[in-house]
């Protein structure tokens, strides 16, 4: 009927969290190889993660590092080699050079293009299909109508995020560490990381006197996310009606329990929508989701505007 997926960075989070609302799990944090025991950078942990997910009847997708420099290609290659010997249901890439590496190494698993793959057009989707890509995550700037257009005109699966903070920009280095006392003494990735990203960090630009817009962004170190949480819980009927089937909840940077609470709400809302049942009252779900979103909710770019607006069902 539909697939609901989310992301989990490492084995500890996978074992301790409740991801039962999801049909599939993207394993790994594609933004930071230094993230503790990150599946994306620890080949020796892949088999255990995969086994855990498959044992629960879910699909397991492996995320590869999104912005490898030349020095990263060797270890990314090692992760790929390990992954290709395991029965992953798909492998996600964000970098076209890594996509080429996958093909060179004989990858026969489905390949997904991640959020930083710069997918804006059906013509690009067609090029990527020739390289083995079966699913794309269209750039978050695209509207729902454009996403559907790409799915239909490239005949390809599209991943549609329905909740969570939108990835806005990624870095090759850690912004948190660079601006800490430790960062002044040692470069990121050289053993100096003390995982300060376990604390929430925010970028703010606002003045109480109204002279500037009141803006906020969440920073996870190597990635900046939207301050507000994308929320499409009121629009399940529309998503189902558009023929979209692969939905996703962003979990990166969120507290334990976030993915479970959000997943339960969307599992229920989407099942109702796909069964053609009346949507019911969204107020309790919205209250819960709003309580998990420090800076409020938004619809991203889905309804053809800048990313911060929220448009209700009415």
């Amino acid at each position: 009927m539909f697939e609901l997926s989310t992301d989990v960075g490492n084995l500890k989070e996978l074992r301790e969290g409740d991801f039962s609302a999801y049909d599939a799990i993207y394993l790994g944090d594609f933004s930071c190889p230094e993230y503790p025991n990150n599946f994306s950078s620890h080949a020796e942990l892949l088999a255990a993660g995969l086994e855990h997910v498959h044992a629960r009847g879910q699909k397991a997708y492996l995320r590869l590092y999104a912005v490898p420099g030349n020095d990263d290609l060797a270890w990314v290659g090692d992760v790929i080699d390990t992954a290709l010997a395991l029965p992953f249901d798909a492998i996600e890439v964000h970098n076209l050079g890594v996509l080429r590496m996958l093909r060179e190494r004989g990858c026969t698993a489905p390949i997904h293009l991640g959020v930083f793959g710069n997918l804006y057009t059906h013509e690009t989707a067609k090029v990527l299909k020739d390289h083995g890509v079966t699913r794309v995550y269209p750039n978050p700037e695209l509207s729902l109508d454009e996403v559907r257009y790409i799915a239909e005109h490239a005949d390809i699966e599209v991943l549609v995020p329905v909740h969570g903070k939108i990835p806005l920009v990624i870095s090759e280095t850690c912004f948190i560490l660079e601006h800490s006392e430790e960062g002044a003494e040692g470069a990121c990735g050289e053993g100096s990381c003390s995982y300060q990203c376990t604390q929430e960090h925010w970028l703010k630009r606002g003045r109480d006197d109204g002279s500037r817009a009141d803006w906020s962004l969440k920073d996870t170190g190597r990635m900046t996310l939207s301050g507000k949480d994308l929320c499409m819980v009121e629009h399940g009927e529309r998503l189902a009606g558009m023929g979209l089937k692969h939905f996703y909840v962003h979990n990166k940077g969120e507290a334990p329990g976030y993915a479970a609470a959000v997943g339960r709400i969307y599992r229920d809302a989407l099942e109702r929508a796909f069964a053609g049942e009346a949507a019911g009252d969204f107020a309790p779900a919205l209250d819960t989701l709003a309580s998990l979103a420090r800076e409020g909710l938004c619809n991203g770019y889905y309804f053809e505007g800048a990313g911060q607006r929220y448009i209700g069902r009415s």
């Binding site: 750039n139 806005l168 920009v169 962004l217 939207s226 800048a306 990313g307």
Partner: peptide
Amino acid sequence: KCIMSSYLR
């Protein structure tokens, strides 16, 4: 790799 600007305005 950046869409910060359009997220804001």
